[in-house]
Structure formats: C-alpha cells, structure tokens
Design a protein around this nucleic acid. Structure first.
Lengths: 302, 302
DNA sequence: TCAACTTGATAAGTTTGACTTATGATGAAT
DNA sequence: ATTCATCATAAGTCAAACTTATCAAGTTGA
C-alpha cells in the first residue's frame, strides 16, 4: 500500500531542485516519462499530491514543502551509511577485540600494541587477557574477534595460524649458573616451580619433563611468571619461562638463565579466529605484526 | 555501484531481530532465499559483510553493529514521512493561506475564522488582506492558496466559485431617513462618497451610478468603509456599503440605511484559486463555511 | 489568430530484477 | 553415521521500471 523507495525520494529531491521534469530526469540519468511516473507513484502511495503542475511551472504543494526536509534527511542518512561502508572497506579500522593468554600478554603487548596502533590509527583495539579455555569460549561466543594463544587449540570451528615458535629457558638461582644444564630427566628430581593449574604453559613444561600433570604439587605453583622467578631467586627451586619473558623477568632478579640443548622445550604461538569471521585478511596482517613485535623480544643466544 | 534500497534495509533489520534467515524471511513475508539474496546484495553493494554466518548462529559483524542504529533511524524517518502523509490525507489540515479583500475582511473574518478553526482544529490559517489585483498576483505566485474576492475575476488560470450575492445599501445622514430612496440617476447628482482608487467596491458602486470611474473626485474618497460612514454621519454626503458591513458600520453612527428597489446594486462574492491547485476539494468546503458565516451577517430586511 | 513550441502525461514494448520453488552443501545433533 | 537444521545456489516466473514514440494542453510570437 505505502511502498516508498529511495529511488522515488531521490527523484523527488531532483524535481524540487530543478522545478522541471525534463531537467530533473536528465540530472537523474533517466527519461522524463520515467521520472513523471515515479513521482506520480510516490504521490499515489502517499495519497497526497506533492507538486502542482502549472503550465510553465512546477510548484511544491504545502505537503511537499513539509516533506522536503524530511526526505533530505533520509537521503543524507543513507549517504552517511554509504560513507561508513566505504570507510569500513579499508581494512584495519573499527573495533578489534583481541584475547591473549597471560604468559604472552605482559611481554608481547607493549611493543605489539605500539606497532599496531601506529600502523593503523583507525583501529580501536581492545585486549582481553585470560586463560586459553575462556578465550576459546569467548571467541566462540563472539565476545572477542581473535586470540593469541599457544597452539594447537584444535577447535574445528577455529582457524589457526602459527606466528612463531619460542624456546623455554631454564631459570635457576644465580649460584647454580656454572652448573651443567640439567636434562629433562634431571628436572624431574629437582624442585620445579610452575604456574598454577589452568595455564597451558604449565602443561607444556610438565610434558617436557614427562611429569603427569595430575600430580598434586603443593606449594610449588605460582600465579605468574614473575612470582616464579622471584621464588627461584629466593632459592626455592628452578623454573622454566618462555624466551620472550627473559629480559623482563630476570632483569632485576638474582637468577641465571640457561638454554636447553636441542631438542629444547618450546611452544608454538599463533592466532585463532572463527572460521566464519570475515576479518581473516586483517588477522593475517595482524599476525605478521605480532611476529615483528616478538622478534624484538627474542633473548640473545646465550 | 552503491544502490541501497529501503527493502534491503528492512530485511537487514528483520534479520538482526530474528538472528535467523528463515524466521526473518517469514516475518518479512518473503521466502528465505529471497531474503538471503537481498542481504547478500546489500553486503556486496556496501562492500562489507554485515553478518557472520556460523553453523547455528547468525551474528552481526562489527560493521553491522555500527550500521544497525543508522538503519533503524532511516526506517524510523521513512515511517514518519508515511505518517505525515496519512495525516495529510485527511483534508483540512496544514497551512492554508487565504487572501481577502478589504471590503469583506473586517466583517466576514471574525465569524468565518471562528467556524473554520472550530470545525478544523488542525488547520493553520493565514490571512492576507489586500486589494484584488495584488491578491491575484500573489495567488498566481503561490504566495497564497485561495482568495475571497468580488467576482468575476476572469483570470483564465483561476477557478472561480460564487459563494453568495449581497446587495449594496444606501447610507445617508439620519435626518434624511424619511426621504425617498434616490435612484441611480439621482445618485449622480448627490455627493457620493466612495473608497479610494483601487477598491473593486468603488468601481462596482460607480458602475451602478453610471459614473465613469476615471473622474477625479477630490475630497470624496475614503480609505475604508468606516471612514465613509463617519463622513456621511457628519453630513458630507451619502455612500453605498455592502450589506454585510451594515451592522458593524452603522451601529454607532448617526446615519440611516436604506435598501434600493430592485434591480438593486449588488456584488457577487466568491472564491478563486489556481486551476492546478490540488486543494480544490478543500476550497469548496471552505466556500460553504464562508456562506454560513456570511448568512449570519445578513442585515435584516428593512 | 494561428502555427510552432514547451512541457508534462500517456501508450506500447523491452529489460531488469525481485520473487518463487526446488535443490545443494555444510555443520550439528542424536 | 544418519538425520536435522540452516543458509546458499539454481532455474524459472512475473512485476515493475525503463525506454522511445506520441498525445494533450498551454504558451509564445508572428
């Protein structure tokens, strides 16, 4: 019954501009009868005449005058929507919600965020730091757009890309610096301090030592790598930390750092996102920015 | 290239509501593929995905979320335009600019405006009082919508409808009340006071008396009927006034009023408007309101 | 006063595109 | 593994928007 179209509104505005069916039609890129018909249709669907057709004059009716500013606003809004789309077509703009696990966030983010916002100032970055299982849930839920985690995650709904691999290094009290680097087997016999249950990094370290993760390990778990390193400095044991944490965590602690001989323990860092996400292209770009940022954190070979 | 349609925006909103192509299609009264295609078209013309189609979930993209409130506003505005149209369909609403000549306005308007706004409270009436030639120009120009004047106007571009006829009556000093009513020929010999040049009523009076209107008549012209009647009361001559002016103008003046025998002088009052005006229906209604109002002003037969 | 011109409406025919039903593809659930 | 749910694709139909050609009415100018 009342079926307005944007086309009709555009013709309406053109006719107001030109006050002449032929000229308005030219300006709209259609023939004069086409415009006449659309205007007529518009008037009929509104049930009110918009123009008074006099011999050599096309005049707006009162109602037409009332309508004109409304129509202009509608067309302006539509134009803005189109502008928004044009803007959004250029990738790397808009909100981007990134999840990061706690054993990466404190080391990677400062440089990473810097690179990211510097190269893409229109990007509105939100960071969520929590454990992998929760990141996975939030990703599936659409609460975040992507996550930087240790791979593999093996969720069939997610795409995974590897960004880089990094070794784990041994952290022991300063006084042990001269001792030979213990083997994985040796570590089983030492006081190995680890992150509390839930951190994937804990599981990765345990797996290197062939220790079953279900073992109760009272008093030997810390909630952050910082805590672990401080405990090591206090002589309570040894720990493993990822290479990217070395410079931050051992800067002011009385500990020594040692690399393991190959095959050294390592983890694979990568990005995941929903396979259905339309932002895949952006994510690949971001992965390469992460790679650059991480390269700057690599601890010089000992 | 970027050819949005309101239909697409409506489907977009429906899909946001239902988060489900099938349900949104049902709600929109179309088939699911039709909706899918329109959404796809919308996304392609914007160049940006709006929805993320996961297995059992349809989720807005970031851009879609940004777009949603804009789209809702556009649809709301369109709805308001439609509402305006529905309102305007009922006649007798909106602005109505009426021109009236000075020998009608002061007598007719008080009652007429009362009737009009009482019966049609949504009507926003503007009154323009000036001489016929200017009313004609303003009507042709679209500055007023209709005019109440003495007919005929004989403009080919205008429609004319007669509303009523009214007699002219003789006004003379009170002391002459008992004298016989003079004939048109007698009037030529009397001091006939008339409105100044330009008033159609002047010409009508002169024509009754068979006096050439081009005659210079120094000192005998007044700018309003009120003035003329006061001059008559002062004994400076006699005058003619239209019947509708009698009760107002002679209420507190020392004059007597006399009707002419048939064929009495009279004028035809009517409405005129542009033949192209879409408001013709309204004008006929208004004409009948004028008629009612004028009937109340008719001077009781002497 | 009449012929030529302007200009918007109407007519006829063509093309575009929006819709339908039927079917395919993919991931989820039992 | 099969069935189900759900969105995309395909093929065909029909309505509507556009085109050109023509009409009708009013204006202009000799």
């Amino acid at each position: 019954m009342m079926n307005l179209t944007l086309k009709q509104l555009r013709y309406f505005e053109a006719l107001i501009q030109h006050q002449h069916f032929g000229h308005a039609a030219d300006a709209s890129g259609i023939s004069q009868p086409a415009l006449s018909m659309q205007i007529k249709e518009l008037e009929e669907s509104l049930g009110v005449p918009l123009f008074e057709r006099a011999a050599r004059q096309v005049r707006l009716t009162r109602f037409g005058e009332d309508l004109a500013p409304r129509v202009r606003e509608i067309l302006r809004n539509v134009g803005e929507v189109e502008d928004m789309a044009r803007l959004a077509q250029h990738n790397m703009s808009g909100r981007l919600r990134i999840g990061v696990i706690p054993t990466i966030a404190p080391y990677l983010l400062p440089t990473f965020i810097g690179h990211l916002t510097q190269n893409h100032p229109t990007l509105d970055v939100h960071i969520r730091e929590t454990l992998t299982p929760r990141l996975i849930a939030e990703l599936a839920d659409g609460k975040i757009d992507t996550a930087i985690v240790a791979l593999p995650v093996s969720e069939p709904a997610f795409e995974e890309v590897t960004i880089f691999e990094e070794d784990f290094v041994l952290v022991r009290p300063e006084r042990d610096a001269a001792r030979p680097v213990p083997s994985a087997a040796d570590l089983q016999l030492m006081q190995l301090l680890l992150l509390e249950e839930g951190h994937c990094f804990r599981d990765q370290a345990l797996s290197f030592c062939n220790i079953r993760s279900s073992l109760p390990r009272e008093g030997l778990d810390g909630s952050s790598l910082t805590t672990l390193v401080q405990l090591v400095a206090a002589g309570l044991g040894v720990t493993l930390i990822p290479q990217m944490a070395v410079s931050v965590e051992t800067r002011s602690a009385a500990v020594s750092v040692a690399q393991f001989p190959t095959p050294s323990p390592k983890r694979k860092i990568g990005m995941i996102w929903r396979k259905t996400s339309p932002l895949a292209d952006q994510f690949h770009q971001i992965a390469s920015i992460v790679e650059t940022a991480a390269a700057g954190l690599r601890y010089p070979t000992l």
